[in-house]
Design a binder for these strands. Structure first.
Lengths: 306, 306
DNA sequence: CTGTTAGCGCGTTCAA
DNA sequence: TTGAACGCGCTAACAG
């Protein structure tokens, strides 16, 4: 107590750097995201940061710009720093995950988030996109749409596979025929999306509704359709993923969105990392891989002006 | 060379933690922002992160959610970590800057960014909002608008003072009368903005153009005007600040925006911090405070659909 | 030029 | 219960 009193008097402050060094802990977790300026990811990091704050942890940020090389370099940086845990949303072209192997060797947990590799022996937090797509299809079928198109993402993305899978399963579950031609991929650029939309419109059985990979893609698709004088959500109804907050200010936005709760997903990811950090203290021999699937929710875009 | 060879063989890797400890450097800079999910800030951090990467530095992120208490706590965290430098965009209600004083004592440079305190002895990177507002006023005057309203931000914000100042100066420079009543504040919430818009519309000399604090506020103002059956950019023209990328997808958005180049501003802020870090090595007796003002640019919102 | 050592600030351990 | 000493991994200073 004498020490404590004196410590306060001299306003002594422990040197965190020394503690980090000695404890072999940095009290920070790394987060690697493709693009911070996308609403989904900025909401996610917001959730991660808030949860980290609650655990008195800091967040080290890296942005891959969807570039595998940059992603590798950031991972390197995070390893050097080093972080106690890592949350990663992989770049859209990343197919090699070796640059995350070192973390396993160093006993630093890596948790994949949203954009997850299609692997078994990893920790992950993501949305159940298959179920989400089923929700979308059911919504459209319930609204008497018979021909449903889909503008999907790049085929190698796990998220694209899940959407396709959900689409097919939902149709079959409702005793409808699943037509391959109604699913067209986009590379997520405006041009790619326009091309995809053009393909759908050129089909003999032109769709009366389209499920789109995400809201950004939806806006491009809608823009293209309007240029072709198609009445949005009348001639063709759009349903999308993500639910951008700004959609409520738009006159022509998807009728409904599959909400993925990025903020909550981020919180969940961070919470999971912290639980892994704590459990890794114990001498658990076998690693139990956390695969957390969060449910999506179909929400109508409530237009403020109608 | 023998050592180097052996080091490679054993694939020895230096322990960054020990280096940090010994060198008293963490090779990371802290960034405190009010809200990451706002497009402006997410673009800014993108620029900061990219610049930091070039210097092999990491970015430690904190989000104040415009809460002074939270801001304080994050600053505390950053100090403990500790970071080598700090970039801060202050919360909108922060009026006390004492929680940043400790950094000065620790010889850790603090650079204020965009939301800057109205003080002399600080480093800062921000936009010249006064000049930006002059651009906006001139644009409107050139387009034959005689009565120009302004929905400003909270009056104690430096950014609000600058806009007001710019408005007044621009009018006087063009030999027009500056009418106080045409400047109404909003607390930046939707309700506050609607109230402000209502005030403007109730004036005897109703404005034919309105300069709005930022694009988010503009969208609320426009929404309110539309509900009153006012034709946007016909009955009343809107000019705003920030230039949200999604505006190009909207049918009713401000006619023009004062672009603030958040990404470049972020890069600039980071570059400035690094120059401060290097210069603080030398035994410079007197601190030269960096006050960097970046110029804005008026851009027309090019509608893709017209 | 090469090899050795002190010491950074903490927590832990061991001795008193 | 209290206090002294050690060692984490590195770099800088110093000695050979």
């Amino acid at each position: 107590m004498k020490v404590k009193k004196l410590a306060l008097e001299l306003n002594y402050e422990p040197n965190q750097r020394a503690i980090s060094f000695q404890q072999k802990k940095s009290f920070s977790i790394g987060v690697i995201l493709p693009e911070l300026s996308e609403a989904f990811f900025s909401a996610a990091i917001s959730g991660i940061e808030d949860m980290a704050g609650k655990h008195n942890y800091s967040v080290l940020l890296g942005q891959s710009h969807d570039d595998e090389k940059r992603e590798k370099q950031i991972a390197e940086n995070m390893k050097k720093h080093p972080v106690d845990g890592l949350i990663v949303s992989i770049a859209k072209n990343t197919e090699n995950y070796q640059h995350f192997d070192i973390f396993k060797r160093l006993n630093i947990p890596v948790l994949f988030f949203d954009r997850i590799p299609n692997l078994e022996d990893i920790h992950s937090v993501s949305c159940n996109m298959e179920a989400g797509t089923v929700q979308a299809v059911n919504f459209l079928l319930d609204n008497k749409h018979l021909v449903i198109g889909m503008i999907n993402g790049p085929e190698k993305l796990f998220a694209s596979q899940q959407r396709r899978e959900g689409y097919a399963k939902a149709m079959i579950a409702r005793n409808k025929q699943f037509d391959q031609e109604l699913v067209v991929p986009s590379d997520l650029t405006k041009e790619g999306t326009q091309l995809a939309m053009a393909k759908l419109l050129a089909l003999p059985n032109k769709p009366t509704a389209v499920i789109v990979f995400n809201d950004y893609v939806a806006l491009d698709a809608i823009q293209y359709a309007r240029q072709k004088n198609i009445r949005i959500n009348e001639d063709i109804t759009f349903v999308s993923f993500a639910n951008l907050p700004l959609c409520s200010y738009m006159d022509f936005a998807p009728l409904a969105s599959i909400e993925q709760f990025p903020y909550e997903q981020g919180q969940n990811a961070a919470a999971t990392i912290f639980s892994l950090l704590n459990s890794s203290h114990q001498t658990t021999e076998t690693i139990v891989y956390q695969t957390i699937r969060m449910e999506t929710k179909l929400v109508l875009n409530n237009k403020v002006i109608d």
